[in-house]
Design a protein around this nucleic acid. Structure first.
Lengths: 197, 197, 197, 197
DNA sequence: CATGAATGAGGTTTCATTCAT
DNA sequence: AATGAATGAAACCTCATTCAT
């Protein structure tokens, strides 16, 4: 079973690489098979079809993301610091996984079927987490009571997606973490926290 | 010449309809030709190839967007009101052009070749315009001096893109303008404007 | 239109040749295209898919069969002679069209979807015609009143199919018309006609 | 050895079921393995390949057919009665084994390689048996001397095949034995026997 | 004997683009 | 300028068969 999972992982890693270079339609099973060093037919033992393989990627990767995120948030107190950390980790994660970033941001997020996949469910963990942080902040009184928490979440995820997407489209020619400070300041100010908290 | 442009426009409108239903790869020239009521070959008299037709869409549409935007901004004074109007108009435009919205947000914006097209240039008009508004605000002293104006632009465009994209992915089942008030408040507060300005 | 039909006929003739050598599944579109001297894609301009092409064969051929049959029956009087002529023409037709025979007898006739095709309808003309001859014979009193005319038809078509199928399976190494006399005698005697009529 | 044969029989029964639902090409080894509750590889321990498995079916089944036929013919005297019994049993056998019927009539009988298989040899027993009955009838003087006994055999087998094939293609929606009386009458009359014999 | 994961060849079908009319 | 028939490349997926365990 470990051996079986190993080969499955092997295929997923190859798929990330290939899907992130071209897009879904222009990536071929043959390319993925070659990169994974398995026969084309083998892929169909582990995945129902090309789309199934495609959407299996974020399921695994989002798990990784959330697991690591929790570690990074551990021991941090204060909404201010938690949001800063979240923003930092979000940018950091994609800096370290640009291939996955391209696939997720430029392909999946924009695919109508995405919302119906298991992948999307695992994504909810992430968006729930940030909402939780915002709620706590409001309860603690450090976030203004009059802001809509759902819109606030959209603000945060919106700018992060935008920043990462822009970076990817520019060919990753600069450091995504470059403007981390400015982004956090802007976001935190918007929701009512003074820098000094 | 007017007649020529008429047919070209006819093809573009058909293309928007078709491209917005499926994606680029799944849309066929034959579908577009049928909807435009011309022969397939005729499309190649006006556009070099499928991609050229695809990227001709935003060139025209962004022109419309900017022209109308200027009308709406006319006579409005104060950075506060200008940004509010910009946000409102942005949401309003996609509410009125959901087909184009799908094509732009879910297809183009995410396409690596997009940045190299004429379409992208026409897009710059838009992003320049918002930057201009922000700059003026900073000069007038209503926007904090310490915010990075480029990041600010990314914040505004980021949340707007996110809000519109989310609405499109949810199947346009609610009104995008619904949260216009909350979005503006959050953005404006973030960049240092008090609501009362 | 004539030119269009010409190409369609060209493809059908090639299809008969190819389908009669191998079976449906082992015949390839590429083989048919090559024999018809057209590109593979061209076949899909005239036929929806491989199966559609396959079942288009008997539609055309059965038309030919019936048209010619009528000519041969013309001027012949007497049930006795009509049935003899029918049997003779049936065997003669497949002697002249062995390729089509192989496709029809060894592939189509035995295919469950066949009964749902247009081809099958055109086939009814044929079976109706023989039934008509039998009925007339019974009315004229030359065929025994006590025989079931539908079973009689099955007897005639059954032995003819069997004779032709056997001949095809033996590799067409003898003349199908060889036993024409014996077959007719047996059939006619069975339904109550004396040879002398 | 008995255990070995058991598993072989198990696989053949599964094969009959699967092959009779789809055709040879559309039936998969995997389906057969699943139905037989063995691994795919196991099938290759008992049969050389898919075709070998396929043609192993009639070898066994025809043995059954002939064994039972002899029992039914036992004690019956008179060519008249023997042929009637043969016709009855033929129809009865396929009524009881429709799955095998579909495979034999719609697949095997029509397959060019069939004549070269062991299965075909076991089939000869059957056709020899009916020829024998006809010969005896001619010697006893109850069948006209002027009929060709080989054609007679073809008449009998032809109508029986036709009747069974038609029944199978119609989805076995009626009783094959329904027209047993009419079929026998017609056949017997054709070869010169009066009903009263 | 039994297993079942791995293989990889091969065919149907689609569709952007061309070009003769 | 407009047409639309013809092209042909290219990719997903299936599945019989093998072989190491």
């Amino acid at each position: 079973m470990s051996k079986k999972n190993l080969k499955k992982q092997q295929i997923i890693e190859a798929a990330i690489e290939v899907f992130s270079k071209n897009n879904f339609q222009n990536s071929t099973i043959s390319q993925i098979a070659q990169k994974a060093e398995v026969a084309e037919g083998t892929i169909y033992q582990y995945f129902k079809n090309k789309e199934d393989l495609f959407f299996s990627i974020p399921v695994e990767k989002t798990k990784d993301f959330c697991r690591e995120l929790e570690l990074h948030l551990q021991g941090i107190t204060g909404t201010f610091s938690n949001i800063r950390k979240f923003i930092w980790y979000y940018l950091y994660f994609f800096k370290m996984n640009p291939g996955y970033g391209r696939t997720l941001m430029l392909e999946m997020r924009v695919n109508k079927s995405f919302a119906k996949t298991k992948a999307y469910d695992s994504f909810k963990n992430l968006t729930d987490r940030i909402l939780e942080i915002i709620k706590e902040g409001q309860e603690e009184g450090v976030i203004r009571k009059d802001v809509n928490i759902f819109i606030t979440r959209q603000l945060i995820l919106g700018i992060l997606e935008h920043v990462v997407t822009r970076w990817l489209l520019k060919g990753e020619t600069y450091d995504v973490l470059e403007h981390y400070q400015d982004v956090s300041d802007l976001v935190l100010h918007g929701i009512g926290l003074s820098k000094g908290e």
